[in-house]
Design a binder for these strands. Structure first.
Lengths: 110, 110
DNA sequence: CTCATCCGTAAGTAATAACTTACCTTCCGC
DNA sequence: GCGGAAGGTAAGTTATTACTTACGGATGAG
């Protein structure tokens, strides 16, 4: 259950635009907090707070390098969200196709 | 751009627990608003408002059936989120592996 | 033509969350 | 040791947002 609730928190974490931007920056290149704050339109503490949320959601990991904390993507959190979405996507695709076919039949009948 | 921003809104839409529950109920079986409200711990208007958000995010579609509006999953919105996540997942997995290998090397060196 | 059901929207409220500044600790170069 | 850079946390403010009740419009049954 810890795994699935972490995956679910991932959606809330990536729901915020600033956090999504941080996620994309870290995806491009593992970065320290100060480097992210330089690029973003928010203060450094705000970046720290966002990173805490992303970390808690299992989307990033942290590693010390001198005084700098380097943040990287954690593929496990992303993978959990991906799996959850994949399962629903597959069943949705089947149901959607059935629905569209039925609609077409009804229109033929008119 | 309309496509990608819709996909991104999807994360915010699924970030809310009630909305995620609605999403799962609709995934199990296409439902009318009143049926969803019967199961959920919130009022019917609240369900309507959540469905509007999900619809705007491209995650569900609506079809009239008498006075009832039947909501179904829209695989396109889910697919867009899935694609976005997939791309980041793949690159994250590569970067993560490299990072773990480097860590192992440094520990060997000590 | 009523009457009931289904549903969306408006308006107001209370909780949440994203941001700021201020402060303190930790680590490196000199 | 000392000064400076990096960053997590606290406290306070403001904007979102998830919810409620109240209302009005549309559809189907009798």
């Amino acid at each position: 259950m810890a795994r699935s609730s972490a995956a679910l928190n991932g959606f809330a974490a990536l729901g915020d635009p600033t956090r999504r931007k941080i996620f994309e920056l870290v995806a491009e290149e593992p970065s320290a907090v100060v480097d992210l704050a330089r690029v973003l339109p928010v203060s450094r503490p705000a970046v720290s707070q966002h990173l805490r949320v992303l970390k808690h959601a299992g989307l990033v990991i942290e590693s010390a390098e001198g005084t700098r904390r380097i943040y990287r993507l954690d593929p496990r959190g992303i993978g959990a969200m991906r799996d959850w979405l994949d399962a629903h996507w597959a069943s949705a695709l089947g149901a959607f196709k059935t629905f569209v076919d039925e609609q077409a039949d009804e229109e033929d009948a008119e």
